[in-house]
């Protein structure tokens, strides 16, 4: 540092300025829309504030209320955990299955691929409303079809035991993104490895187990971790499904019962809304927000460490 040539120093300063200029929009955005609100969320989590009267210091009361007394916190966390375990694993297995299928289809492959991909594009509110209708237990087409085959007809979104499976079905329907990612990964598996395995007498399952899987394992990890993070953010679908299935729509002057039926569709992001924008208990909403933040960052850290480069900050 001590022997730097003055011209070099000037050039360095210029280059630092240039970098700062390029980065400026984001530096501003980061501070105003990330750093500041995060600190403010922490601040409010210790305050009592209803939106009308000035915030007052509330110590750890909001924290103990959320963890001990708020009736929706643990059900929401349990539901989110259920979805993380069941929905994410089914989505990864199904996505891989559809990816495998689409690489083997010889007739009209483009058409099939489009069919499989299309539902991913359906706007979530529209897709959810469509599924609530399709899975309407009394008159919905799904149960009508099940009836034709003499199969049991579940209550889907109207039955606390079936509402999460119904949401999972909706998530499987929109598998298009994972399918494409897996398809690309499958096509990248070196062909000679399959040939070598075949010469060694490996059958299709052994080839899948010893050639395909090791080759696509980084993609699998990527799919699992991003799936977990997405699931922790799961908001629109369960909320709309609950509202529409219960027959209570937000626009018409009534409060809705969150998580209909029986809190079975309540997820962690929804209780931030419930506390912050229905109960106007700003402090407790911020406590839940911080819990959600910690969970998401923990999984993001896993992705950055183990993601073998996907999300690596290095190039």
């Amino acid at each position: 540092m001590t022997t730097i040539h003055p011209g070099l120093k000037a050039r360095r300063r210029r280059s630092a300025l240039r970098t700062a200029a390029f980065l400026s929009p984001w530096l501003l955005g980061f501070s105003v829309f990330f750093a500041y609100p995060l600190l403010a969320t922490l601040y409010f989590s210790f305050m009592k504030y209803d939106g009308f009267t000035a915030p007052v210091w509330n110590g750890l009361a909001n924290w103990s209320y959320v963890f001990q007394d708020y009736p929706f916190f643990w059900p929401a966390l349990r539901n989110t955990l259920w979805l993380v375990v069941v929905m994410v694993s089914l989505r990864v297995v199904f996505g891989l299955g559809v990816g495998l299928l689409v690489t083997r289809v010889r007739t009209a492959p483009g058409l099939f691929r489009t069919f499989f991909y299309l539902p991913y594009l359906a706007p979530p509110v529209a897709a959810t409303m469509a599924f609530v209708f399709l899975l309407n237990p009394g008159t919905g087409p799904a149960n009508t079809v099940l009836d034709l085959f003499g199969m049991p007809q579940p209550g889907w979104f109207k039955d606390a035991d079936w509402s999460k499976p119904a949401l999972t079905l909706l998530a499987l329907w929109g598998i298009g993104d994972l399918m494409i990612i897996f398809m690309a990964a499958l096509l990248d598996v070196p062909r000679d490895q399959y040939e070598a395995a075949e010469l060694d007498g490996a059958g299709p399952f052994a080839r899948f187990r010893y050639v395909t899987l090791p080759n696509i394992s980084p993609i699998l990890l990527f799919a699992v971790v991003t799936g977990v993070i997405e699931t922790m953010q799961f908001y629109t679908q369960p909320l709309v499904a609950g509202k529409v299935a219960s027959g209570v729509i937000g626009g018409s002057g009534q409060q809705f019962e969150p998580g209909y039926p029986d809190q079975s569709t309540l997820t962690v992001p929804q209780i931030v809304y419930n506390l912050g924008f229905q109960r106007f208990d700003t402090g407790s909403a911020c406590v839940v927000a911080l819990v959600l933040f910690a969970l998401c960052m923990a999984f993001t850290a896993v992705l950055m460490r183990r993601g073998s480069g996907f999300l690596s900050a290095e190039d």
Binding site: Y36, M232, A289, L290
Partner: peptide, 8 residues
């Protein structure tokens, strides 16, 4: 998730 910072 957008919900984390929504209150402030």
């Amino acid at each position: 998730p957008p919900q984390v910072v929504i209150v402030p």
